[in-house]
Simulated assay, not measured.
Amino acid sequence: MINVLLVGSNGAMGKTMQELVEDTPDISIIAGINAVPVDNAPFPTYQTFGAVNEHPDVLVDFSHRSLLMDILSYSISEKVPAVLATTGYTDDDEALVRQAAEKTAIFRSMNMSYGVFIMNELLKKAAVLLEAGYDAEIIEAHHNKKQDSPSGTAKMLLNTLKAEASKTDLKPVYGRSPQSGRRKPNEIGMHSLRGGTIVGEHSVVFAGCDEIIKIEHTALSKKIFASGAIKAARFLKGKSTGLYSMSNI
């Protein structure tokens, strides 16, 4: 049995995680962290990490980047591995995660979907094969409550394109306006759509002469992210230090 401390347990993803765990016999959520008190929760919930009395095997975070420092401090001091499934981290946040991984075990992914991991692996190949003669653009779409833009996954796809390219001057262009002018060869367009209840769509478009090649992923349910977090929790249990990602599982 893997005992989990769920951070953001009353949010949309926290509730999805709870639903999935009900049919997962080797995972138990023994406590939760929320910004506000939760009535009638199926497990004890707290507003601060210092109030947690339980002893989890793994922490799973589906909250907000503002809690990152508290999460890392708790993970290090209590020796509890952490699955960081929150988006919107800044470059400074990512640096803090890398530093913390020297003292505790952390699983970090821009997207907890295994399908998105496969998409990114395919993109590594396509970025090399299609660099010459094709213009690359990234399009992502999410529900109207998502706060960060572009999505963490879109940033990951951008980083993959830049890492695999032979050009060193590639730069993102966020959206286009009447003043944007003609597209420059070193640009990678980044476009974000927000509306309705879109779970998550990501597309990398390679536009060439008389043809278009696309690599796409569409999330039909939030359950795929919770499922990925469960796989990560299984993988992380018992580990003491290190930074891990989908490529490790």
Rank of each mutant, 00 (worst) to 15 (best):
S109E: 14
N111T: 07
M112Y: 08
M112L: 15
S113V: 12
Y114I: 13
G115M: 15
G115E: 11
V116Q: 11
V116I: 14
V116G: 00
M119W: 08
M119D: 06
M119S: 09
N120D: 07
K124Q: 15
K124M: 12
K124P: 07
K125T: 11
K125L: 15
K125N: 10
A126P: 01
A126H: 12
E131H: 07
A132R: 03
A132N: 09
G133S: 14
G133Y: 12
Y134E: 13
D135S: 08
D135M: 01
E137Y: 12
E137M: 04
I139H: 13
E140K: 00
E140I: 02
A141F: 10
H142L: 09
H143M: 10
N144A: 15
N144Y: 14
N144W: 08
N144Q: 14
N144V: 11
K145H: 13
Q147E: 05
Q147N: 10
D148M: 02
S149D: 01
S149K: 13
P150K: 10
S151A: 13
A154P: 01
A154D: 02
A154L: 00
K155G: 05
K155Y: 01
K155H: 12
L157C: 01
N159R: 15
T160Q: 06
L161F: 01
L161S: 09
K162E: 08
A163D: 10
E164D: 03
E164R: 13
E164L: 08
A165Y: 04
T168D: 11
T168S: 08
D169N: 11
L170R: 06
K171Q: 08
P172D: 02
R176L: 03
S177P: 01
S177C: 02
P178D: 09
Q179V: 05
S180H: 10
S180D: 05
G181I: 04
G181P: 01
R183A: 09
K184W: 08
K184H: 07
K184P: 04
I188Y: 12
G189A: 14
H191K: 10
H191P: 00
H191W: 05
S192G: 08
S192A: 10
S192L: 01
S192E: 03
R194W: 06
G195W: 13
G196F: 14
T197P: 01
T197F: 03
T197E: 14
V199L: 03
G200N: 05
